[in-house]
Computed example of a mutant assay.
Amino acid sequence: MSVEVDATDLAILRALAADATRSAGALGREMGLSQPATWRRIRRLEEAGVLKGRRLRLDAGRLGFGVTVFLGVKLATKGRVSLDDFERAVTAIPEVQVVEHVLGLYDYRLRIIARDLPDFERVLRRRIMTLPGVGEVEANVLLSEERLPGPLGAA
């Protein structure tokens, strides 16, 4: 379903991308709209699937998780292990924050958080490598991360 998005909709989306906790009233005042008009626009964007919810971004470091690792996983036995079974098993591991099925050298890209490198090694050895069908893995430790504005660009 395609929805027409005008300049006001884009401004609302940019504002929500920057701070999803803002109320429709506060957004409306900024955009020169009434609270009900702003709310109707937000609901229309949600119903069309353009706005797919609002999420909290937690600071993993402040919660004691100082290491983020991107792990490429190549399944060894794709014929015997269903992709759904792997996805179901890997998403049950609390340290795995994101599971992406990708095209390329690896079948999956996982974003994993751990307290430190020994904790990551424990997760890798005891949880990831014991999953059915796991073959090769490649770990990339995150050094720094920049927040990009995404497809809407800067305001």
Rank of each mutant, 00 (worst) to 15 (best):
V5N: 06
T8R: 09
T8E: 08
D9I: 05
L13H: 05
D19S: 05
T21L: 05
R22E: 14
R22C: 05
R22Q: 15
G28M: 03
Q35N: 13
Q35V: 01
A37L: 06
R43W: 11
E46N: 06
V50L: 03
R55H: 12
L56A: 10
L58P: 07
L58F: 14
A60Y: 09
G61D: 13
G64T: 08
G64F: 07
G64R: 11
G66E: 07
F70V: 10
L71Q: 05
L71I: 04
K74L: 14
L75Q: 04
L75T: 05
T77D: 12
S82W: 00
L83Q: 12
D84N: 10
F86V: 02
R88Q: 13
A92M: 12
V96W: 01
V96C: 07
V96E: 00
Q97T: 09
H101E: 06
V102A: 00
V102N: 02
I112N: 01
I112A: 03
A114W: 03
R115V: 14
D116W: 02
L117T: 05
L117H: 08
R122S: 08
R127C: 01
R127V: 03
R127L: 09
I128H: 00
M129W: 14
T130Y: 07
P132E: 13
P132K: 15
E136W: 07
N140L: 11
N140R: 14
L143S: 10
E146M: 11
E146F: 15
R147C: 04
G150Y: 06
L152H: 02
